[in-house]
Nucleic acid binder design. Structure first.
Length: 275
DNA sequence: ATGGCTATCGCGGATAGA
């Protein structure tokens, strides 16, 4: 089973890139972030014509996530409130459409179910700003959300998306200023580490130890051409899934196309029969 | 370098991204 994550920076602008990529790569589930469109205007039929089911949580101009799946998904849940119940905090954070979760249950097989959580973690703007504290609070709520999910139904869990955090220095082209840089500060890394301590491991690092592998490059100043990038798009797996992972790859090809997204897709391959 | 680029909304230029 192959699951990919891709921040497309507007699904309507990037529709051809995504459809072409899916045609060549044929993943089972594609998790999209920054779709930047309300649900009514999401190009759903373009994916359905290619045999995919579409599950979306979008808003006007900003944010927005989607699950594009070969098989129908079950128990689709959107936002924090659907899992944590309504509170001042869940309602406030759910104004921004940043998470969608569903269960993939292979039909006719004895293979176990897999819960897929697709995230668009807030960017944080700059260290110390209101948006920075919003990001840290959002990650704290995410920790609570995942603990609740696992209590409700302790199944295999895959969390992927644009985390807007480089967890280690080897995930940054130049880590010298990292302590003062958004996406690399100690508090951001600690907030993500607390989430991962629930029992999640980075699929990419099962296979690749060296630095120089990135998933995002700044549009400005020839970031991609000079490989001045960051690895901020991740695939995190619960223990048995991590054991069952057979590959995790970053596909830089779409970044070379005209008018690319600034992020590229990251795909994890799982041997479900090994579970 | 208060730099560099891209997308949305909406029609100029602010806002956001990372």
């Amino acid at each position: 089973m192959k699951i990919a994550t891709w921040n497309v920076n507007s699904i309507r602008t990037r529709l051809d890139h995504v459809l072409n990529w899916l045609y060549v790569n044929a993943v089972d589930v594609l998790c999209l972030q920054e779709t930047k469109v309300v649900d009514e205007l999401f190009p759903q039929s373009a994916f359905e014509s290619e045999g995919y089911q579409v599950y979306i949580s979008g808003q006007k101009a900003y944010n927005g996530v989607a699950l594009i799946s070969r098989q129908a998904l079950k128990n689709v849940q959107v936002g924090f409130t659907s899992v944590l119940g309504s509170s001042e905090a869940t309602e406030r954070f759910d104004q921004q459409k940043r998470l969608i979760c569903a269960i993939s249950s292979p039909s006719g097989a004895e293979q176990p179910s897999l819960r897929i959580l697709n995230l668009y973690v807030p960017n944080g703007s700059e260290i110390g700003s209101d948006k920075y504290y919003y990001k840290l609070e959002w990650l704290a709520l995410l920790e609570e959300y995942i603990q609740n999910l696992l209590q409700q139904d302790p199944c295999h869990l895959l969390i992927c998306g644009d985390f807007n955090i480089a967890l280690e220095d080897r995930d940054i082209h130049d880590a010298s200023e990292r302590a003062h840089h958004i996406m690399a500060s100690d508090l951001e890394r600690q907030a993500l580490q607390r989430v991962l301590q629930i029992g999640l491991q980075d699929a990419f690092r099962k296979f690749t130890a060296e630095g120089g592998h990135f998933s995002w490059w700044n549009y400005r100043a020839g970031g991609f051409q000079r490989n001045r990038g960051w690895r901020i798009d991740h695939q995190y797996l619960s223990k048995a899934l991590y054991q069952a992972a057979t590959a995790c790859t970053i596909d830089t090809a779409p970044r070379r196309l005209p008018q690319p997204s600034d992020h590229v897709p990251v795909t994890v391959e799982l041997d479900m029969a090994a579970l």
